[in-house]
């Protein structure tokens, strides 16, 4: 097995709020291997965007970061702002959610690219910068005729491709894509997913793909990490997780997704928990159809189940299970008043 590009160990991110610290990311561990696409899914407020930004050191002031993000033998959590600043761009890239607001309307596409290259690779000759930019744009399906156009002359899908090209022109080893297709239409979305899935072949870039759409994960990712209330509750190869989900949350999430083969409606009762004062033990237990006595009492361990890793007492470990822990937990009635 090749060395991971990025190793995240027990990463925690807190935000200070009036009511106490909100634990947006609370002990997350994962690896990203070269050329791999890791999907990060979860409902809004589960901490997936915070995680993506935390990895890149792009958190707002007032956020506290703890744990390890190992990139090229360096722990980015402890790195100075200046050091991370230097890595961002040529090593670590970010693709934003809304392409419409991320390009400067007063600059031509060519200027966006040439400025980016100049900032990070000042020794690059001008002709070479242009050549490289056009090549990356071509790979994203933007014709060379449009190189000198302004952002407003492009459609939303084209702008997102330009954003992707802009992140890739510096050839980063690792890119975070935060809901890159959310604002786009189905057909354009499918085109962009295709492009992102091809990245590993054409650019050898590893990708952390943040989305709430399970269908997209199935299409574009090699592995998936399912996040709930700041924790990764299940991770593993996409095909295994989707075919045999092991965590009840993953199972419920898959069941409640409406796809073309949906014949009945299903949903998860209740709402994601408050991150300031999360439920004790397993955070999913108040909504979990399979909750047991042990679930609110003890934090679940990370257990390997086949190729997956799951945080759920259903999968043990048995030696830590207290007496009577497997008894069914009687749940409180969940009303609409608590729903998401």
């Amino acid at each position: 097995m090749t060395e991971p590009v990025l190793s995240v160990r027990e990463l925690r991110v807190w935000y200070g709020t009036e009511h106490g610290p909100a634990r947006a990311v609370d002990g997350v561990t994962f690896d990203l291997r070269p050329g791999e696409v890791l999907g990060l899914v979860g409902e809004s407020g589960c901490g997936k965007s915070t995680l993506g930004r935390g990895v890149l050191g792009l958190l707002p002031r007032g956020a506290h970061l703890d744990g390890e993000v190992i990139y090229q033998d360096r722990n980015l959590v402890e790195a100075s702002a200046r050091e991370i600043q230097r890595l961002r761009g040529p090593e670590l890239g970010l693709i934003f959610q809304e392409p419409l607001t991320r390009l400067n309307p007063l600059l031509r596409i060519s200027e966006h690219f040439e400025e980016t290259l100049k900032a990070h690779e000042p020794d690059l000759p001008k002709g070479e910068a242009k050549h490289r930019s056009i090549e990356v744009l071509r790979a994203m399906g933007i014709p060379p005729t449009r190189y000198r156009a302004y952002p407003h002359e492009f459609s939303g899908g084209m702008r997102q491709r330009i954003m992707i090209a802009l992140a890739l022109v510096l050839r980063p080893a690792f890119v975070v894509a935060d809901e890159p297709t959310t604002a786009l239409d189905v057909l354009v979305e499918a085109q962009i997913i295709g492009i992102l899935a091809d990245l590993r072949r054409n650019f050898d870039t590893s990708l952390l793909f943040i989305t709430h759409n399970l269908g997209i994960v199935a299409e574009a990712c090699d592995r998936v990490a399912v996040m709930y209330a700041g924790r990764i509750v299940e991770q593993g190869p996409v095909n295994d997780v989707f075919a045999r989900p092991q965590h009840p949350y993953t199972q419920e999430l898959l069941r409640s997704t409406i796809s073309l083969s949906t014949t009945g409606l299903h949903y998860i009762p209740g709402a994601p928990p408050d991150l300031i004062n999360p439920p004790s033990g397993c955070r999913f237990h108040p909504r979990c159809p399979k909750a047991m006595q042990v679930c609110p009492q003890r934090f679940p361990e990370r257990v390997p189940v086949g190729p997956q890793t799951v945080e759920c007492w259903l999968h043990g470990p048995d030696e830590l299970m207290p007496d009577g822990g497997r008894e069914i937990l009687v749940r409180e009635e969940i009303t609409v008043a608590d729903e998401a």
């Binding site: 189905v186 057909l187 354009v188 499918a190 199935a218 075919a243 898959l254 073309l260 083969s261």
Partner: peptide, 24 residues
Amino acid sequence: ALLGAVPDPDPERRVPRDLPRGEI
């Protein structure tokens, strides 16, 4: 084309797709 572009979470049902070129 629209139907072909819907991502399906079931890995068993994934099909290679033929997307129309360009945009609206």
